[in-house]
Design a protein around this nucleic acid. Structure first.
Lengths: 138, 138
DNA sequence: ATGTATGCAAAAATTTTGCACACTG
DNA sequence: CAGTGTGCAAAATTTTTGCATACAT
């Protein structure tokens, strides 16, 4: 898995360094992370390095930002993690992973319909999870 | 249209004030806005007030944040603007509005399948627009 | 060996907060 | 009039940058 990063950075003429390996590994372990969490967890590396690493990763398409449950999160892109989307509970923040091939295909079709060559998409569904629905009733 | 805001704030026991009206009107005029743009454009009001207004609007569900084309944007929620999604060109940033009822319905169905009471969703599709595809070929 | 990435320290930019006064309802 | 919202000023936090040194290739 770390091999993937190595190969990818090499392909793009970028060095493979300890902070970059660390950030990548962290993102693999933590599905949803924020920049602050990363800079805090990275005791061995400087904050500035984390920011620079994230900028590089964004530019290379290794990660992307998204807002889920009102928070800005950092996530590995589909190239480095299984393609998926989230269903988030607006009350307790619980997150489920969802995937639905028909929708994925249809989104690509819509892009094409507008003359676009689709490269990706993101879906965020929100609602009240079953537990919170029960609590709400009481 | 401004009437909508007034009524909504009243319902939630919140005062209708000049800064709040102004922010709301600005969001109606500018489909995609950033906080910085708002604080800069708001020459008559203090930055702090804009931040406080946005927090209130978020809490009341008048606006929501989203990341599109790599930028964090502020947008009116469906209650205050026609429901829609975006198709963004990763090269030139062009944005088209898209809507597809079947997908909307299917997303609700997926939420229900997982025991969620769906309250909303967001879709962001990215790709290369026709113009940029042509340029890329040359 | 050479060029790039990092750490450190400082600066810039963004966001939050306290308090006295102004305005809304 | 009473209570809440605002402006202002300051603090806290987050993000960016310059430069000398360390590291990757």
């Amino acid at each position: 898995m770390d091999q993937t990063l190595k190969a990818y950075l090499r392909e793009h003429n970028q060095s493979v360094t300890p902070p970059r390996r660390w950030v990548f590994a962290y993102l693999q372990k933590h599905e949803q992370t924020t920049i602050t969490e990363l800079t805090t967890a990275a005791t061995d590396f400087d904050r500035a390095t984390i920011y620079r690493t994230l900028s590089l990763f964004r530019k290379l398409g290794i990660i992307h930002d998204l807002i889920s449950g009102g928070r800005k999160l950092i996530e590995l892109t589909d190239q480095f993690d299984a393609h998926h989307h989230h269903l988030t509970c607006t009350s307790c923040g619980k997150r489920l992973v969802i995937a639905d091939p028909p929708i994925e295909r249809r989104l690509d079709a819509i892009a094409e319909l507008h003359g676009f060559a689709p490269t990706g998409h993101q879906i965020e569904v929100s609602g009240l999870c079953s537990d919170c629905r029960k609590k709400a009733v009481k």
